[in-house]
Design a protein around this nucleic acid. Sequence first.
DNA 1: GTCTATAGTAGGATAGAC
DNA 2: GTCTATCCTACTATAGAC
Lengths: 197, 197
Amino acid sequence: MATRAKYHHGDLRAALVDAALALVAEQGVDALSVAEAARRTGVSAAAPYRHFPTRLDLLKATAARAAELLAAELAKVNELSDPRDRLAETARVYVRFVVRHHAGFDLIFDERLRVGDQALAEAGRAVMDILLPIALEITGDARAALDLLEKHTAAAHGYAVLHLSGFMRRRAPAVEDIAEGAAEVSRALATRDGRSG
Amino acid sequence: MATRAKYHHGDLRAALVDAALALVAEQGVDALSVAEAARRTGVSAAAPYRHFPTRLDLLKATAARAAELLAAELAKVNELSDPRDRLAETARVYVRFVVRHHAGFDLIFDERLRVGDQALAEAGRAVMDILLPIALEITGDARAALDLLEKHTAAAHGYAVLHLSGFMRRRAPAVEDIAEGAAEVSRALATRDGRSG
DNA sequence: GTCTATAGTAGGATAGAC
DNA sequence: GTCTATCCTACTATAGAC
């Protein structure tokens, strides 16, 4: 089909980022290579360097794309009325995301990627702009909201990556079990901070 | 000195594992290479293959060594009388360990490393043999103890790895701040489960 | 903007000498 | 058990043709 043959003519940059994202999902961040991303996109190994000066730049763009996708997932949560329910749901969403993409806040907020990358910084901020108001609604206080969010995030991230390594698999083989565990921690923390429940 | 010149004659295997451990601590698990471990130990690139058939086997031994070191650190906690204090302290110890070694349960319990490696399996079990009794003392119930331990571990691990990526650094620049956050989550969870606080 | 070709680097792993 | 020498593979990045 013409569509397929011209795929990388339309937007090779985006196609490479998609390929990179898939690579990260399959084998982790360190397995990302410019050559393999090019191979999967159907172009030569040199082609990507027109769009990304170095491997690191491709990785930055991939992290930014991941942040956008995560923000889109998290944005869906706002249907629930109780902020504690919403926060707990973001834990589930986050766990599913990390398990699916083999990347999360560790990639999106990686110091080494953020140097001089405004797109990534903005994409990361967009994620926080979804989470912070929820936490703030629970605590009523900015400092406490950050504290709650920090704990909530740490737990969700820990659950996700330990699931990926296999540590959690004996007790909780399914991703949803893991997501539920993270949600429970979130709820335990939010209940404390909200002085209700 | 004779000691230095004969270093790798005494126990090259252990020396390689030490070098591997240092490498992981500096650059992460994926940066571990047999060649570099050999270089640092002062032997040729071929020498390690007498002791480890493949890179993966060196990594397995490294994970086992990490588990032993972690168990030794955790074992020191048993001075405190209140089990909630002890559990919270293991969170601090764990965070410090992961930040220092760039590895924790994700490495020690990695599925891919555990296949057919009894030493690693035993070292991992030794770690759990320290933590489980503490959790059991808090909950009184085996199922609840596993659940508490899972949440406690996820939070501590999440805190540690997110600190390493840089995510936590703006709010909590020091490792001890991170360790404290993990300890607080542990305490929040334990208080719930122990129905006292 | 993409290609082919190529230089340079680094690592995994094996063979055979010592 | 350790060495040197070697093969193979894979990747980053650049130069120059199209």
